[in-house]
Amino acid sequence: METTIDKAGRLVVPKAVREASRLRPGTRVRFRVRDGRVEIEPVPLDVSLERHGSAVVAVPREGRPVLTAAEVEETTAGLRSGAPSEGGTQGAG
């Protein structure tokens, strides 16, 4: 898959790549150069740990879009089978 950087330095991430990696509009990404390659990854989600009853849960500090039922089912099925889901994990979104 190929794309082109425009004169303003913008890069269009192909739809198939966005879908597979679950990158959505507004997702913050980080660029790195390693061994002559450019790597792009979502910025880890900033969370705070809060006690909810007897459990401690990670709560996003910024609003996040709600996952669809299909996304939850896909991720759960992948975890149960031991195989990664099609989109992998979305540490940032």
Rank of each mutant, 00 (worst) to 15 (best):
A70M: 10
P65S: 08
S21T: 06
A20V: 12
E19R: 11
R10K: 08
R34V: 12
T76L: 15
V38A: 12
R22N: 07
R28T: 00
S48A: 13
R61F: 00
K15S: 09
A70V: 02
G63T: 02
P14W: 01
G93L: 15
I40E: 03
V59G: 03
L11G: 02
K15E: 12
A16G: 09
R64L: 08
V13G: 03
M1N: 09
E19P: 02
A16N: 11
T27W: 12
V13S: 13
F31G: 10
G26A: 00
E86N: 14
V43Y: 03
R61N: 12
R37M: 12
P25D: 09
L23A: 10
A92S: 11
E71N: 00
S48I: 14
R32E: 12
L49V: 04
L11I: 06
V66H: 08
R28W: 01
T89C: 13
R61L: 05
P84K: 06
E73S: 15
P84L: 08
D46T: 00
L45H: 03
G53I: 00
I5T: 02
P65D: 10
L45W: 01
E50Y: 00
E74P: 04
S81T: 01
G9D: 15
E39G: 03
R80C: 15
E39F: 15
R10E: 13
R61Y: 07
R51Q: 15
G88Q: 00
S81P: 04
S54M: 14
A55R: 10
P42W: 04
E62C: 07
V72A: 12
R28D: 11
G93N: 08
A20G: 09
P60A: 05
V38K: 11
A58P: 06
T3P: 03
I40A: 04
R18I: 00
E41M: 01
S81C: 12
K7Q: 15
P44Y: 00
T76P: 14
G78W: 00
S81D: 07
E86S: 15
P14L: 07
V17Y: 13
G91T: 07
R18F: 09
V12K: 14
V13T: 04
P84H: 09
G91M: 09
V66E: 13
V66M: 13
F31N: 07
E41T: 11
K15T: 05
P65L: 12
R51D: 10
Q90F: 10
V13Q: 04
A92T: 06
A77I: 08
G9Y: 08
A58S: 03
D46N: 11
T76F: 15
L23W: 05
E73R: 05
L23S: 02
F31P: 10
A70T: 06
A77V: 04
D6N: 14
S85E: 13
L45I: 02
E73Y: 01
T75C: 14
R24G: 02
P84V: 05
A16W: 10
T89I: 15
